[in-house]
Design a protein around this nucleic acid. Sequence first.
DNA 1: TGGTATGTTCCAAA
DNA 2: TTTTGGAACATACC
Length: 270
Amino acid sequence: MPELPEVQTVVNRLEPIVVGCKIKKFWSLWPRQVIPSIALLERGVLGKKIIELNRRGKYIIFLLSDHAYMIVHLGMSGRLEWENQGGSNLDHKHMRACWQMQSKGRLVFIDPRKFGRIWYASHLDQVCGRLGLEPLESSFTPDRFVESLGRHKRQLKPLLLSQSVVAGLGNIYVDEALFRSRLHPTTCSSSLTKPQIKRLHRVIIQVLQEAVERCGTSFDWAYPGGSMQHHLQVYGRSGKKCYRCKGVISRTIVGQRSTHYCPHCQPEPA
DNA sequence: TGGTATGTTCCAAA
DNA sequence: TTTTGGAACATACC
């Protein structure tokens, strides 16, 4: 379930519950998901209190009482859920890790596809150091976006998915942002005019804010609870009528990812 | 059965 | 050095 709005929704829900909790036990049965290792993460977090819960891009960041970090990325199918003690004795089918808190209650990590990751790190940059601008922060200004985009010369869609210019966009919201800014996904970043870049900057913020307000997009078993799926304009709408021009939404592959766009509103670059 | 899936990383080639 | 394309990771659904 993992783009910025879905991750923010998880953080919003968990923050009031887990901040202040002291970690009593940790287990994981899938060593590849835990970095640098299950033993080192366990040594780092046991007995530590969670001081803050934050988000950076698609990463969920636990600040611990010794000022080190535990960081979770949900991958394609990961979920983090809180369970009060005795609430459900039934373990989930795809439970991959669990944090037992001293005050009763536990945090469980459920991840069918095992693409999620859990880190223990003394510095945030060890995990998040290569991330681009944070799109819902005031530091995401049109000028900084222009400057960050200017360092690359790539097709827009793969560039926005790379996390290196803007952090947190994924396949759904890149398609939505490009549609709303009327840019074809394969447009070369270096060919954009300043007004086009400023419009793209504006719609990225708009789309992400709207999705956060709607608690993200829910369209299958992986992530329940959101309502943004009812307000998407191109993603998942191939073959249907464009809301703007009444043409037909197309689907193609760009950078190995399924890509939805309106050929009329987002004309292919020359 | 084969195609598809909200993500990231590594590698080879250009 | 930067960009691009392919494969890998692993599982579920239709």
